[in-house]
Design a protein around this nucleic acid. Structure first.
Lengths: 333, 333
DNA sequence: CTGAAAGCGCTTACAG
DNA sequence: CTGAAAGCGCTTACAG
């Protein structure tokens, strides 16, 4: 079955391709009623579907954006991504999601591939290790928005959580409940990922603010597959912490696994707060106190900022947008 | 900054566009070494990036597939989608994911939009209500694979769970543990969604096989927002069930919320099995017995089947692929 | 009010 | 071994 093109429609309707094109683009300004009807009829009879690729080539817009996430396994990422898709859908844009898997090489490959595919802009959860590429996009004024993380010295619009505040909310809550020995666990900080560094910073200053000592051994970063070991080590010391702040959802899961495995009681033996309001927090037993990120708002904001840039409604935007975390008080502390 | 095109490279390297194109496509057959070098040099100097859209127009292949899921909120969907993306990535294909939100109108819109964008094929979790469109794609031999669900009388390759077996595994396990009054809860069956219908069927026959009575009141289907009410009604009868089979992850969550709210003990007051091996099943308290779907395998198979079709390696494939569910025995029954 | 023509950035059969 | 030319399916400035 041969593809129907605009030429076929034109022939069938006995008008020129130009006129059909005008019709398709709803530039009816001076178009005769009968012409419209004829074209409409021809389109229906032939079952014509415009070829978006051809249009994209000419118009230099694919109505598609790319989203490169650092790691799709985070619940946060999934939710933000969903919000981005929703917002884009509203603007008739498609999204191509790519998972860099925390690997700068993959990230580079995706950036290049997506740009070759002429996506109109990119939302990136940057690994941070492709500064030259980021810079190149900046220089070319190619529309980019960073999400969740920023890259030092790169004036790229970034949508982020107020991470220090997130850690502070948790530490304050622990302090309020009388806990003094509070640990912070995060996944690897090898790449100096913004949220992790900032959460550690916020944790430190919040402890000080509450007159609590900062024990360096209580700050632990480990890869997910080493987390059980790290927990064992952390909790088998002379003076183990009474409370743990899990730096993200994956850490929280590891903590809960450990707790279950060891038969610890929460919060009696160990109090827990997790950053990221995971789905099961509310109906877990005990229900888990969390610090929620406004994932939906953040995703939408990221998408809107990018779409504005694409639309040149840019007008010198402030580079960083910070979002307020929210403490969800439940029973685990 | 003007876009660099193949013409610029050709000029810089003092060869023709054709030759550059050959080079890009690695058709080196008769290309002189110095020519290659010159082109390579020009590409680097200019920072040339091929325009994939132009190539797509000519080659009639976008190296992109579309995935239209019925409802992205299911954990199953997220996992399958991830597997599809992985498999496609391996074949240098991109994926555009669209969420039809169980709405046939949205589904139609997405199918048309993606085809206009000339995606090379489509994986669809069909709502089932766009038979004409499905048929049209079949007639045009456009590459399509259904996932999770099939559509009656549509000979479209479909990748599905052995749903009857999934229900049977659960019922057998309940029976083995001595439970006699077993309920099955599913989300709405308004559209006769394949897995739900088949699970109900499997549940019925497994009860019979185990010599247990089929109580029609124990088979309940409700939308998510009516689930609590439905549970209340189900469990406040004269002879309430002692066990519930949650038809999917969303139902399971509603059941757990109810249980927590009412302070029921699991499995003493109510035994539970969920179809879909949710992330928290293993570290929930009590840990939840589930029937796992091989989401990764199913997604990969769907992608491979589609890529084969696109590649015309089709050769009359069997229309349905069934995957074996697996019982994950834990503490909730 | 409508059409002929050029062009978007590639690829490819063909000529030499 | 390499190049000129046509063409993929559209859009758009311009002419009439």
């Amino acid at each position: 079955m041969k593809k129907i093109t605009i030429a076929d429609v034109a022939k069938q309707a006995e008008v020129s391709k130009s006129t059909v094109s005008q019709y398709l683009n709803k530039r009816y300004d001076y178009m005769g009623e009968k012409t419209k009807k004829r074209i409409q009829k021809a389109i229906e009879e032939l079952g014509y579907q415009p070829n978006f690729v051809a249009r994209s080539l000419k118009q230099k817009s694919t109505k598609t954006i790319g989203v490169i996430v650092a790691n799709i396994l985070h619940n946060f990422t999934t939710e933000v991504t969903r919000a981005i898709e929703d917002a884009c859908h509203g603007a008739d844009f498609h999204t191509i999601i790519c998972n860099a898997d925390d690997d700068p090489v993959k990230e580079k490959h995706y950036i290049e591939m997506l740009r070759a595919k002429q996506v109109d802009g990119l939302i990136i959860f940057p690994t941070g290790d492709n500064r030259d590429l980021y810079q190149q996009m900046l220089d070319a004024s190619y529309p980019v928005v960073f999400l969740d993380r920023k890259v030092e010295e790169m004036p790229v619009t970034a949508v982020m959580l107020d991470n220090e505040r997130a850690a502070e909310l948790a530490v304050d809550h622990f302090a309020e409940k009388g806990y003094e020995r509070v640990s912070l666990m995060t996944t690897s900080i090898f790449n100096h990922v913004t949220p992790r560094m900032e959460r550690i910073e916020g944790y430190r200053s919040a402890l000080r603010k509450n007159g609590l000592a900062v024990e360096e051994e209580y700050i632990v970063s480990a890869d997910q597959d080493e987390m059980q070991e790290a927990l064992e080590k952390l909790l088998q010391t002379e003076q183990p912490p009474e409370a743990i702040l899990a730096g993200n959802d994956l850490v929280l899961i590891e903590v809960l696994k450990y707790v279950k495995h060891k038969g610890l009681r929460v919060p009696e033996d160990l109090a827990i707060i997790g950053i990221d309001d995971v789905s099961f927090a509310s109906f877990y037993t005990p229900s888990i106190t969390t610090v929620a990120q406004p994932t939906f708002k953040m995703g939408r904001m990221g998408a809107e900022l990018l779409l504005d840039k694409i639309d040149k409604k840019d007008k010198q935007m402030s580079p960083f947008y910070r979002f307020e975390p929210k403490l969800m008080v439940r029973d685990s502390v």
